[in-house]
């Protein structure tokens, strides 16, 4: 179980990106962390995976624990070895490496003999990648690169996989396919998933629990089915107005509608 307790992150000693957030991801659960641009979602993931330091960020306060072990001061390498892997935003695969090498490099921290078994599992998850094994990753399509990034992440045999916006910039059909695979990974391997998304619709559909982040704080959290029903979430994150009939822009007065959690 991953637990964040009152975590604060500051960039360059002045800019507070995350201001005291707490949440938890139970083993084998799928938890969604939602929010718009600049809410601090990616920063939160970086704090967990330990790469903040190389980007001038710092965990000022609070604690991050994974199964009782404190992660605050751990290096990215140690975090990966403990079983947490992050699939970065924007499908950043190693362009100059082949698909096969990209996947193999995901197992960099491992020395055990099951690497080949996991390699086969990844190839089984993504038959498309198997066909393109010897191609340079830079020439794959967007969807394929996202699959590759997930497959590469799986090679570290994570207990918890953190996905940063896996649906970003992909066609709806591809998004569906990718989420099917995420569900399969969760069910077959028992890997916990922390899903960071702007696409609240897809995320809440697949997650069991959701947290909503704004301006570096968590403003709401609940079970997914409850969040979907929430009026504010519907208006601001799901793009629904609650009424069956279409409203005219004349009547909306959008600027008057305040989010209830901003008192």
């Amino acid at each position: 179980m991953l637990t964040l307790n009152n975590v604060e992150v500051v960039y360059n000693d002045v800019i507070a990106a995350v201001r005291g957030i707490s949440f938890e991801v139970p083993d084998t659960a799928i938890v969604a962390l939602l929010g718009s641009n600049g809410a601090g979602k990616s920063t939160t993931l970086k704090a967990i995976s330990g790469i903040l330091k190389s980007q001038d960020g710092e965990i000022e306060d609070g604690s991050i624990e994974f199964n009782g072990v404190r992660l605050n001061e751990k290096s990215p390498e140690q975090v990966v070895k403990m079983g947490i892997c992050q699939v970065p935003e924007g499908r950043r695969v190693f362009d100059d490496l082949t698909v096969d090498e990209n996947i193999r490099v995901g197992a960099f921290t491992r020395k055990d003999k099951n690497i080949n078994r996991d390699y086969d599992f990844v190839m089984d998850l993504f038959p498309l990648l198997k066909e393109r094994k010897n191609q340079l990753a830079g020439y794959l399509s967007g969807g394929e690169q996202q699959m590759l990034a997930i497959g590469r992440g799986m090679m570290s045999k994570p207990k918890l996989m953190m996905l940063d916006e896996p649906s970003l910039g992909l066609a709806p059909l591809v998004v569906k396919e990718i989420f099917n695979v995420i569900m399969r990974i969760n069910q077959e391997e028992g890997t916990g998933i922390l899903l960071v998304e702007q696409n609240a619709n897809v995320a809440l559909l697949h997650a069991t629990y959701g947290y909503i982040m704004e301006n570096g704080k968590i403003v709401m959290d609940d079970k997914s089915e409850k969040l979907i029903e929430n009026e504010d979430v519907k208006t601001f994150y799901l793009g629904l107005t609650g009424d069956a009939q279409k409203k005219s822009y004349k009547d909306v007065k959008h600027y008057k509608r305040r989010k209830r959690w901003l008192s």
Binding site: Q86, P88, D95
Partner: peptide
């Protein structure tokens, strides 16, 4: 190729 991602891969 990409140092940040190399960090993330451990």
């Amino acid at each position: 190729d990409d140092q940040d991602i190399a960090f993330l891969m451990g």
